[in-house]
Simulated assay, not measured.
Amino acid sequence: MKIAFYGSSLLSSYWNGAATYYRGLLRDLALRGHEITFYEPDAFDRQQHRDIEPPEWARSVVYPATEESLGQVLAEARHADVVVKASGVGVFDTELLQGVIRHASPHAIRIFWDVDAAATLNEMRGAPDHPLREALKDLDFVFTYGGGDPVVDAYQGFGAARCVPIYNALDPTTHHPVPPDERFASDLAFLGNRLPDREARVEEFFLKAAAALPDRSFLIGGNGWHDKVMPSNVRHLGHVGTADHNAFNCTPLAVLNVARDSMANVGFSPATRVFEAAGAAACLITDYWEGIELFLKPDEEVLVARDGQDVAEHVRALTPERARTIGEAALARVLAEHTYELRGAQVDDILTAEMAQRRERAAA
């Protein structure tokens, strides 16, 4: 099938945490024979911070963030069998949502792909005139980055015909063990952009732990932290491109995952960082969120913390041998159960079944 995907960015992870999620899923779908076109606006300096060049498995269309260019790329939706509007493009989100519905051909499968479902649902609850509320009646599916039954129930309560979580996963060709790199040497490292609904949790789980362990070294990567007051044993790297993620995960004694408020509250929402770290056989410490045991087993494949004190105690007690054992167990688990090959098969099955049903109805 021809898939037209309108998202934030395939080429850059700069202020775009969904980049590796898009790449993993769409690459697998391309390998299954689907023709992928990814449309992304030239916005937020992402094109000046590319991690990859346009891949051979997708047609990449970068359009100026203007109304004229928006109209041109939306017009191309009529050629697709599947049209996807992802959440959080950052510019023209409402126009893109309404435009893909309006321009899609009558036979096309229309999908809203929510990479931050908990936040989107909170917005919808507070805004009776939210454009997605009206659009749901014209969409065939809502796919979500995670969220489990709470998100499915909420979306169906708003009128979604079908809502299916398509969880993050590992692309082992991209994220895998590599030799350590002294640039990332530390006892605990955290990678994530500074966002309003994440900052307080980073203060609790990362900075509080650093303050409690002044003799240990801490490393933080991501955009926006440059003017944040931090303990003296915390080193800030700034943006870390995806090419360095493996070394970032492999080098420290342990790496930390901190969920955003909305994702922690709803649960069942493992971040891409969870699978990237596990894929590199890193020892992962994560804040607690409901459903984590569906992805990694606490104390054996991941260490779970309920506050900064727990994080500090994990780091204090951790030995290189135990860290290695946990990381290797996590790698084995995600390779067996949480790869983009498996997620791609899930999406492919859904799309194939839906298109077959449409053909049957048309032939009847």
Rank of each mutant, 00 (worst) to 15 (best):
K208F: 10
G146L: 01
S186F: 08
T251K: 06
A119E: 12
D310Y: 11
D348N: 15
L11W: 11
P231A: 05
H239M: 12
F205M: 14
G159Q: 08
R306A: 12
L207S: 06
F295G: 11
E337F: 14
A364K: 13
A58F: 03
V274P: 05
E203C: 08
L294R: 15
A77L: 03
N246W: 09
A278N: 09
R194T: 00
V151W: 04
N265P: 00
W289Y: 15
R32K: 15
P177D: 03
F184D: 08
P150F: 00
V82P: 06
Y22W: 03
A323C: 07
P41E: 10
L96C: 01
H130D: 13
D28V: 15
P320V: 04
P106R: 03
I326P: 12
I326Q: 13
P196E: 05
G344P: 12
V304N: 12
H107N: 07
P214Y: 01
A280D: 09
G17D: 12
D149I: 02
E203M: 09
Q98K: 10
V240S: 11
E354I: 01
D114W: 05
L335Y: 02
F158E: 04
E290N: 12
M355P: 00
N223V: 15
Q48H: 05
I350D: 12
G71I: 01
A278W: 05
K208V: 00
P270T: 12
A282E: 04
G157T: 04
I220S: 07
Q98Y: 02
R27I: 03
R183C: 04
H34D: 14
F190G: 05
V73N: 04
R198I: 10
V304T: 14
A86Y: 08
A329E: 10
N246Q: 14
Q48T: 02
E134A: 15
T286C: 04
G146C: 01
V347A: 02
A329H: 14
R46D: 02
V151T: 11
A80Q: 03
H79C: 02
G267C: 07
P196A: 04
L26A: 06
L195Q: 15
L335F: 03
R201A: 13
D215W: 09
R216N: 03
A247K: 06
P150A: 04
V73H: 08
N122Y: 05
Q47F: 02
V266K: 02
D45I: 00
S186K: 07
N122L: 14
L139I: 08
L237Y: 15
E341M: 11
G90F: 08
R125H: 14
A75N: 08
A280F: 02
C163M: 04
C163W: 01
G88I: 00
D129L: 10
R23N: 13
P231M: 07
A118Y: 06
E204G: 09
I220Y: 04
F275M: 14
D244K: 08
A189I: 05
I3W: 07
L342F: 05
